[in-house]
Amino acid sequence: MIKAILGKLGPWGPVFFGVGFLAPLIAQTIEKLDRMPPLGLTPVEAGLICGTLLGLAAKLRGRWL
């Protein structure tokens, strides 16, 4: 059963990573650098958008770089 769950969730790993880690990392980096995200977004919103998009792109392309 564990194998089946991992088989289903595994391919979504980059998206989980994008939302779970990259999003707050981007948000906190924006705050640390004292920058304002565009379109009136908060740093967390900008982080979530960038992190999710990066994760989705990595999932679809099969590579981060």
Partner: peptide
């Protein structure tokens, strides 16, 4: 396999928990 899965999940869980509690740069 089981220990490997538990340790890997724990790593990502801790990393994400640290990140969302305001310590993403330190965790990175």
């Amino acid at each position: 396999k089981l220990e490997g899965l538990a340790q890997t999940l724990a790593f990502w869980g801790i990393l994400c928990a640290l990140a969302w509690s305001g310590h993403a740069i330190e965790a990175a």
